[in-house]
Write a protein that binds this DNA or RNA. Structure first.
Length: 382
DNA sequence: AACTCCATCAACCGCGTGCAA
DNA sequence: CTTGCACGCGGTTGATGGAGT
């Protein structure tokens, strides 16, 4: 019961594109506009899969694309957004005019991840590697050899072998190299000790969302600053948050090593979240150590509420997005839409509507989160 | 010079989602 | 309500070229 192939693989050319093929695509698009990709190969006289044509155009031939190196500002934005929303490359790319999700993803995987490792920061959790290791020691000794902690194994080599580069694209961040990335004062749920025995927690799935919300808020606040130093002080300094008080009403005393904002969490309400899914590779975690999920969600997000994400997540053919949140401009610059169409400019930090909009996008994937919990968790009204 | 290793990035793949029939 | 199609997304692969030995 496999999925049918999108085209006759034996009859299509694969591999790198020639200038001639590029010209055919461009000619087709200039005549007909982008879209209807399945019929493009036939109409344009190409022996390529329609999907491949779309990819070639959107990732390489689109006239608005930049092909030069990423600037330090772009790199910093990518890192900040990755810390906030994880590997949602298309969302991140929308904040970077002229960059595609593929560009951003490749740049992250080949450059930024290694740079963070070299700075002693785990690129998955955006936490100091030393702190992650310390947390693991706290929960019962060092992991067995071969055990994966976040992206530690994958990047361990890089962490110790990264060479200094003459042009450090993220030098501003590198200045903070061994400084822990601090969540807003009082709610450093990423920084809190990982206590496997304490079951007095809210829904663990919600914890991850809370972490994301806080990170999003943080990035938003930072992005609203115009001056680089202030941005960094928001992101890396102690006590620089708007969520100022400690999170006293909810015990948030666990964290998800390796989980970050790209949790490999089942997103269906019917499949309960378990820590073991985050710690799948961590053989030393015994089943009976899994945290309990002892608080049922109240007022879960409805399907209607959730629909925002799925509509807005996808770019339309013109590269413009459907709903407000995704055109929010973290950098404070003009919104990006490849056709030049600009939608209403929402300000995430200043608009409760857009806050909700953004949260809806997260809640769509993580629908167990209770809306009522959000303000109290953040201790700040939306 | 020959070979191996590694980084980069374009391209591919499978899956999820929206939508129309 | 179901089905099939089109499209977009994110993870992964593989070709290529440069660096190192």
């Amino acid at each position: 019961m496999g999925r049918l192939p999108c085209c006759d693989k034996s009859n299509v050319k694969r591999g790198l594109w020639t200038a001639e093929e590029d010209a055919k695509i461009l000619a087709y698009v200039s005549d007909n506009g982008p879209g209807n990709w399945t019929s493009v190969p036939k109409k344009a006289g190409l022996r390529r899969c329609g999907k491949s044509c779309r990819l070639r155009y959107t990732n390489y031939l689109r006239p608005d694309l930049k092909h030069d190196n990423f600037t330090p500002q772009e790199e910093e934005l990518i890192i900040n957004l990755h810390a906030a929303i994880g590997s949602r490359w298309s969302l991140i790319a929308q904040q970077l005019p002229g960059r595609t999700d593929n560009d951003v993803k490749n740049h992250w995987n080949t450059k930024l991840r290694k740079k963070l490792c070299g700075m002693g920061i785990d690129p998955v959790t955006h936490r100091p590697i030393s702190q992650i290791l310390a947390d693991y020691e706290n929960i019962g000794g060092l992991p067995k050899p071969g055990t994966r902690i976040g992206s530690l194994n994958r990047d361990l080599k890089n962490a110790f072998t990264v060479k200094p580069e003459p042009h450090d694209g993220i030098s501003g961040i590198a200045n903070h190299s061994m400084m822990p990335i601090r969540m807003p004062a009082g709610e450093p749920i990423f920084n809190r000790p990982f206590n496997m025995n304490n079951s007095n927690t809210i829904n663990n799935h919600s914890l991850l969302l809370l972490a994301q919300f806080q990170a999003i808020k943080l990035v938003t606040e930072a992005s609203s600053c115009t001056n680089q130093e202030t941005i960094q002080s928001h992101l890396f300094s102690e006590g620089s948050s708007s969520t100022s008080s400690s999170s006293s009403n909810v015990q948030v005393n666990s964290q998800a090593p390796g989980s970050n904002c790209q949790p490999s969490v089942p997103n269906t309400p019917s499949s309960p979240f378990s820590w073991s899914e985050f710690l799948l590779d961590d053989a030393f975690l015994q089943p009976n150590q899994q945290l309990q999920q002892d608080i049922p969600s109240t007022g879960s997000v409805s399907q209607a509420q959730q629909s925002g994400y799925n509509n807005g997540d996808h770019m339309n053919n013109e590269g413009a997005t459907d709903i407000g949140y995704s055109t929010y401009d973290y950098t404070g610059h003009d919104n990006y839409a490849t056709t030049g169409a600009v939608e209403t400019n929402h300000t995430f930090g200043a608009s409760s509507t857009s806050n909700h909009s953004f949260l809806e996008t997260m809640l769509d994937r993580d629908s167990e989160m209770s809306w009522e919990l959000v303000p109290s968790l953040l201790e700040e009204p939306f």
